[in-house]
Amino acid sequence: MAVRVQEAAFDPGLEVNAMHAANAGVGAVVAFVGYVRDFNEGREVAGMFLEHYPGMTEKALAKIAAEAQQRWPLLKVEVLHRIGALEPGEPIVFVGVASAHRQAAFDACNFIMDYLKTRAPFWKKEMTGDGPHWVEGRQSDQDAAGRW
C-alpha cells in the first residue's frame, strides 16, 4: 500500500501498469483517475489550486487505504493526490486497486474515492472569470460515502 501527495504531474497509464507489476496473482486492476474540468457550476475554470493539511493528509489517505484492505482481499492499493496549482485537463487523483478477482477491486476503488472525497483534508479553489472561489462540499458526496 502506498500513498503519495505531490505537486508534480503524473502519468495515469504508467500508474495503471505498475499496479500489476510482476505479480501474477493479480487478476484484476481497477483504477480511478480524476481530472480538472474546464467548466464547473456554470463557470469556466481557467485553473485550480489544491490546498491541503500537510501531515494529516497522508495519515487520512493511509487510513482509508488500510480500511479498504481490511474490507476486501486486495493485493495492492495506490493512492496518489496532487496539491498546488493545476490546469484544466490535468489529472488530480489516482486510485489503483489490484486483487485476484474484479469485484473486490471495483468495490474497494469506489469505497476509497467516496471516503477520500469526504475525509481527506483537501480543498479546491477554482480560478474563474469571476475571480477565485472555493469549491463547496456536496451532499451527494456525503450520501455516497454513507452507503459503505
Binding site: 489544491l50 488530480i92 487523483v93 472525497k117 483534508p121 483537501f122 462540499g137
Partner: peptide
C-alpha cells in the same frame, strides 16, 4: 477547523 473537504 475547516470547511467540508473537496478533494478528489
Amino acid at each position: 477547523f475547516f470547511p467540508p473537504v473537496t478533494g478528489g
